[in-house]
């Protein structure tokens, strides 16, 4: 293994991302979940900066800045405020227990690598080997959304999925065009705000944030 330093940093970041994704999958405390999400954002910023520095893609600096402001600071701050106001700390036991969830997660990671292998061969970016990890992050975030029962942890799962997509974009194609990225950032921000409003409404209606109460919303 004689990779240049920036490639090693990117690979390290990718490994950390995957680790954090697994950690989020197992974490039951919502406060820690938000911190993990914030940490994932930070790792993303570092890897984006490395790619930007190594390839001299100036627009990636802006992306990194945007990620830093939005995902490391603003969104976690909003969510911390939310859970303080809503007074939710714990997610209840989900459909699957943690070991089973982890096993499924491992299967998904293998599948993601299997999926990404042929695509990475065509990519000539410096971060091509990380595409599999990015895909795995998306799957794991999705899995988290499925297994959680509190609305807020589902939103975190949704945002983590966006992290995975962003990482996939930087690693495979040096990031999306700036316009698209700005659009997505705005969407995520507005989405979180709207979710926040909805949380209040859901709690007002059902006296709880447990989405299990929404099961009544069907025809029969």
């Amino acid at each position: 293994m004689n990779l240049p330093l920036h490639a090693q940093i990117i690979n390290l970041c990718a490994a950390l991302l995957l680790l954090l994704a697994f950690a989020m999958l197992t974490q039951r405390r919502i406060r820690s979940l938000i911190n993990l999400f914030s940490a994932q954002g930070l790792v993303l910023v570092i890897s984006t900066l490395t790619v930007a520095y190594a390839t001299h893609q100036t627009h990636l600096y802006y992306s990194a800045l945007l990620t830093l402001v939005l995902k490391v600071m603003l969104l976690p701050w909003i969510m911390h405020r939310l859970i303080r106001k809503l007074n939710v700390r714990w997610d209840v036991e989900s459909v699957l227990n943690i070991p089973a969830t982890l096993l499924i997660g491992i299967v998904l990671v293998i599948f993601a690598f299997n999926l990404a292998a042929p695509i990475s061969q065509f990519s000539d970016t410096i971060a091509k080997s990380t595409l599999g990890i990015a895909t795995a992050c998306i799957f794991l975030a999705f899995l988290m959304m499925i297994t959680r029962r509190k609305a807020i942890s589902q939103v975190i799962g949704f945002l983590a999925m966006e992290n995975g997509l962003f990482f996939a974009a930087t690693s495979a194609t040096y990031g999306m065009p700036m316009v698209v990225e700005l659009g997505i950032a705005l969407d995520v921000l507005v989405g979180t705000l709207i979710f926040g409003v909805f949380f209040f409404h859901i709690r007002e209606k059902f006296e709880s944030l447990d989405i299990h109460h929404l099961e009544k919303l069907k025809e029969r």
């Binding site: 459909v95 999705f142 959304m145 499925i146 589902q154 989405i211 929404l214 099961e215 009544k216 069907k218």
Partner: peptide, 14 residues
């Protein structure tokens, strides 16, 4: 198919 559980709907898309 319409279960009412968001997890199941998510599972469908997954």
């Amino acid at each position: 198919l319409q279960q009412g559980r968001i997890s199941v709907y998510l599972l469908y898309s997954f």
